[in-house]
């Protein structure tokens, strides 16, 4: 694990009533990295987050957050880490700024820096005009943004966001993801959890896919795609020209050509063959209308992974039966 890691977990385990909710997981998050904990509800994501913050006891394993042990030095951890719980709540009868003032006092900011920090944070998330409005009137998206403002105000080195996009409309989601990208630009590490894979795929540097309290897969989306989907690139091409399909099939690395519509072809390849494909079309004096490569989608990776696991389980069962 690198020196730069702000979060390091080794064999982290949490047992609830004899059942392991989090089962020996290890991962690390580097400085300025956006790390996604992805997986279905109940897979252990929130429990992992609560252990990182020292808000729940650790049953086993080791964890370091910005160099501190959350179980023994919770105040040092919580001073440097911002946390946005899933469905964050505020005191409804108080204004947005008053809610942040209360948090700022709990953190221990002096009055002068408090006001300046609150104003700057609210401005960053686009809530400056609503600062004196009661939170009761806020929409879900505004509450989530207020939660991010709290992390900004705190000047946290690490932002831990639990299901930040759940229940938001597409517009609010993209606004929120914009603010999260802003964290990265400032060198703040982000750990976010989500069960909506495709939403967060675009902003995560690396992801860990959770399943039943274990990390099933970890790495960049591209790495996982190669590993699980068999390193396949899918290139879609729309062009006209007789015999194009045959000529494209001859490009080195192309393993298959499939006709998906009139003048539409899909190439299976082990690398990005877009330059060669374009050259072939041009050489044939055909007209190239569309050329694109499909990014591996986390949804596909996730589904494929569990299909494969199920197949393997069946296969090993059958194998065992045959052996007997």
């Amino acid at each position: 694990m690198s020196e730069q890691a702000v979060i390091e977990a080794k064999n982290l385990t949490k047992v609830y009533g004899g059942r392991a909710a989090v089962d020996h997981i290890s991962f690390s998050v580097g400085r300025g990295e956006i790390f996604g904990l992805l997986g279905p509800n109940g897979a252990g994501k929130t429990t992992t987050i609560l252990m990182l913050l020292g808000l729940t006891d650790i049953s086993g394993g080791e964890v370091r957050v910005v160099g501190f042990d959350p179980a023994r030095e919770p105040l040092s951890v919580k001073r440097r880490v911002g946390y946005l719980p899933d469905t964050v709540g505020f005191y409804d009868q108080m204004s947005a700024a008053d809610n942040l003032r209360y948090t700022a006092r709990l953190i221990g900011f002096k009055k002068a820096e408090r006001e300046q920090k609150i104003a700057a944070a609210l401005d960053r998330v686009g809530l400056a005009e609503q600062a004196e409005k009661r939170v009761a009137t806020f929409s879900r998206g505004m509450r989530q943004r207020l939660g991010l403002a709290e992390i900004l105000m705190k000047g946290a080195q690490v932002a831990i966001l639990d299901e930040p996009t759940t229940g938001l409309d597409p517009h609010a989601t993209s606004e929120l993801l914009g603010v999260i990208r802003g964290f990265k630009a400032e060198g703040v590490s982000v750990l976010l959890s989500s069960h909506m894979l495709e939403r967060v795929q675009s902003i995560c540097d690396r992801v860990a896919l959770f399943s039943g309290g274990k990390i099933a897969l970890m790495g960049t989306v591209a790495e996982l795609g190669r590993e699980i989907l068999g390193g396949g690139y899918v290139v879609d091409i729309e062009a006209d020209g007789a015999g194009l399909a045959e000529r494209l099939a001859l490009i080195p690395g192309v393993s298959g050509v499939e006709r998906t519509g009139i003048g539409k072809l899909r190439l299976q390849a082990d690398r990005d063959v877009r330059p060669e494909a374009a050259a072939e079309v041009v050489a044939m004096q055909g007209r190239l209308k569309f050329l694109g490569v499909q990014e591996p989608s986390l949804d596909t990776i996730y589904t494929r992974y569990f299909e494969r696991k199920a197949e393997q389980a069946v296969a090993s069962k059958n194998g065992a039966r045959h052996a007997a």
């Binding site: 808000l55 919770p74 040092s76 919580k78 880490v81 911002g82 946390y83 005191y91 709990l106 953190i107």
Partner: peptide
């Protein structure tokens, strides 16, 4: 019920 507890306890207080 207001879901403020985890947010407040994530601040540096016991």
């Amino acid at each position: 019920n207001r879901r403020t507890l985890s947010r407040i306890l994530a601040q540096p207080i016991y």
